[in-house]
Design a protein around this nucleic acid. Structure first.
Lengths: 143, 143
DNA sequence: TGTAATTGAATTGTACACAATCTAATTTGG
DNA sequence: CCAAATTAGATTGTGTACAATTCAATTACA
């Protein structure tokens, strides 16, 4: 019973599945992230900061696929919470150097069991997870 | 060289991949959706409306995984654009009946080649697409 | 070398997303 | 039958997202 509008049905849209799935998974993080006073976006920003320790806004944005319009207010919030510092670079004053603070590094230990908790929260077997990981990388790869 | 913080690295996060991928794919829709004066969220709402024609806010929200906080302003915008009508139900005045208008139904024909255009935009072979579809359904299934 | 082009952040404006709260309408149970 | 509980939607407040613009700093090049 296929009609010419079939492709316009929500249930046939891979993009919608991606969109809905991403939102629902992020929502699952909330209770765990509430405990360490971070939103999901702040959490992924801190993940990069924990790993790199010092970065400018542009570099951070490349990791996160976010621009300064999102990151500027986000980083100001993280600064207010004491997790990062923000300072213009001496060498090139266009660059804003973001550094994770001691307090920010301490937060990492509080966050350490979040990935495990989340894994227990989303029931997907390791083989499927790996497969999904590969497929999403393929799509994201061409961007 | 595994350390105890490995699970907290962005590149190991399936959720981040989902989140980034969904955003990037939605972004790809923009040029096509601009032509028919819809945002992505408005577009998926219209997809349900095209299919169901009449719905209340709660039902629409169940299809879209969105609540009234998002849908109320969205539907007011779609009403202003003339694509849907909003009216309280006579039988139960708590229900707001959303109906797609003639103008809204006409929009469907303008939207009809968007799925094809998008398919040409994201290079993923049909087998992978199917696999991805199945995996995402599995995850979304438990929500 | 001086101006034009480029770059990195910030700002502005629009549109979600969602938790929490509120209000009015309906339903339930004593 | 009526007060309490439930339900549907709207509202409020916070926090993203991102396009477009602005601004200051730096770089390129005629």
């Amino acid at each position: 019973m296929a009609d010419k509008y079939d492709a316009l049905k929500l249930e046939n849209q891979l993009c919608f599945l991606l969109y809905a799935c991403a939102k629902e998974v992020v929502k699952r993080y909330k209770p765990f992230l509430d405990e360490i006073d971070l939103t999901y976006t702040q959490y992924i920003a801190m993940m990069v900061m924990w790993d790199k320790e010092t970065l400018n806004v542009k570099e951070l944005g490349e990791y996160l696929f976010l621009d300064s319009g999102t990151l500027t207010p986000l980083l100001k919030t993280l600064e207010k919470k004491g997790f990062v510092s923000r300072e213009r670079s001496k060498e090139d004053e266009r660059n804003l150097v973001v550094k994770v603070t001691d307090k920010g590094m301490k937060l990492r230990d509080k966050a350490i069991d979040i990935p495990t908790k989340m894994a227990g929260c989303i029931k997907i077997d390791p083989k499927d997870a790996k497969e999904l990981y590969t497929l999403l990388h393929k799509i994201l790869g061409e961007f």
